[in-house]
Design a protein around this nucleic acid. Structure first.
Lengths: 191, 191
DNA sequence: CAGTCAAATGGGGTGGTCCTCCGGATAGCG
DNA sequence: CGCTATCCGGAGGACCACCCCATTTGACTG
C-alpha cells in the first residue's frame, strides 16, 4: 500500500519530499479538514512552501493524492463485491462503505465532487476509478430489477458525497447513517 | 420586503451602513459563493472593514442576515401549503421549493447547515424558523401515512441542504432535480 | 573518483485575507 | 447651539497562497 505515484521519473530527494508532503498533508487534513493550511503542511513536512506547490499545483491535486490509496481500496472492494455478492446487496453494501470512508476521512468529500462548473465527467482520474469500479454494481442491480432504471452512477456518487459533505460540517457521524438509509431507500424500485 | 432587521435601536448612519453592507453582501455572495471576500463586501458597500465586522461579528451572521427574507418567504409558503394542500404533496412541494431556493442562492446552503459540531439544534433563529414552519408539514404527511414515521425534520433539512451544497460545487442545477427526486422517493412509505 | 549540469530546493517577496484597536467624526438630544 | 454616547474607518498585526530566482544537490560521464 501507500504506493502513491508521482508524475513520473523523479530524483531521489524529490521523491522523498513528495512523500513527506503527502504524509504531512494526511495528518493536517485529518485535523483541520480540507481547507487546512498548505503552509502548515509544508512546515510539518520540513519543506519549503515552493516545493509543496511544485509537486501539487493545486489544493485539489494534493487532496486527491492523499486519498488515492483509500479510493483504490474502495474500488478493489467494489470488484470483489461484484464477484461474490448478489446484485442488490452488493451495491448498497458498497455505497455504505463508500459513505463510511468519506465520512471518516475529512476533506475527501470535497475532492470527490466534480471539479467545477464546466468540467466533463471523466476529467479527473479519481472519478474515473470510482466510476469504473462502481458502475458495474449499479448496472447489475438494475438488471436484477432492484434499482430504478433512471438512476445514473453519477447520481449515487453525488448523493453519497453530498451527505458526507453535510455530515462533515455538522460533525455528527450518526446522522450520516440515517440520511444514507433514506437516500438508498429512494433508489429502489417501488413498483 | 427587505425589511431586514438589525439588532435594535440604531443611529441613522449605522442603519444606512447596515443595509448597504447587506446589499453588497448579497451580490458578492451571489457572485463568489459563501466564501466570498468580506473585505470586498466592505469595499463595495463603501464602508470600512471594521464597520462590517461590528455589524456582523461572523461570516455566518452576515450570511443569515442576507438570506433572512428568503427564509421568511419559504416559511410563509409552508404555512399556506399546510392550509391549502393535501398532506403528502404539501411536504414534497415545499421541499422542492426549499431546494430550488437554496440552489439558486449561492452560499445559503452552507449557512443552513447546523453551525458546528457541538451546537444544539435550536441554536440559530434561522433553523428555528424553518423548523417551526416545516415540521408541521412533515408531521401531517406522516399522520396521513405518506411518509415513513422514522423520518425527522432535521433529516429533511440536512438532505436538501446536502444536495444543494453538492450542486453548488458542481454548478449543474439540473442535477439537483434528479437527486431530490431520488431522496424524496426514499422518505415515502414503501410498505 | 572527479566534473558537469539539469533537476530540485527554499528563503523571501507580493498581494491578498480576516480581524482589532483607537483617535476622530457625528447624529440626535436637551 | 453645544454635549455626549454612538459610530466610523484607516492603520496595523497575523496569517495565507503563490511565485521568483540564486543556490544546492543528485546522478550521470569520462
Amino acid at each position: 500500500m501507500t504506493r502513491t505515484t508521482p508524475g513520473r521519473p523523479l530524483r531521489a530527494d524529490a521523491r522523498r519530499n513528495y512523500e513527506r508532503i503527502l504524509a504531512a498533508a494526511g495528518t493536517v487534513f485529518a485535523e483541520q479538514g480540507a481547507d487546512g493550511s498548505l503552509e502548515e503542511i509544508a512546515r510539518r513536512a520540513d519543506v519549503g512552501s515552493a516545493t509543496l506547490h511544485r509537486h501539487f499545483p493545486s489544493r485539489r491535486a494534493l487532496l486527491l493524492a492523499v486519498f488515492e490509496d483509500g479510493i483504490a481500496g474502495l474500488c478493489e472492494q467494489a470488484r470483489s463485491l461484484a464477484r461474490d455478492a448478489a446484485p442488490g446487496p452488493a451495491l448498497t453494501t458498497w455505497l455504505r462503505a463508500l459513505a463510511t470512508y468519506t465520512v471518516t476521512h475529512r476533506g475527501l468529500s470535497l475532492s470527490l465532487l466534480p471539479p467545477g462548473p464546466g468540467a466533463a465527467v471523466g476529467d479527473d482520474p479519481c472519478h474515473v476509478m470510482l466510476h469504473d469500479a462502481g458502475a458495474p454494481l449499479l448496472h447489475s442491480a438494475q438488471r436484477a430489477g432492484a434499482v430504478r432504471s433512471d438512476v445514473v452512477f453519477a447520481d449515487l456518487l453525488t448523493l453519497v458525497t453530498a451527505i458526507s459533505l453535510a455530515i462533515e460540517a455538522t460533525g455528527d457521524p450518526a446522522e450520516a447513517e440515517r440520511l444514507l438509509t433514506l437516500a438508498l431507500n429512494g433508489i429502489h424500485v417501488t413498483a
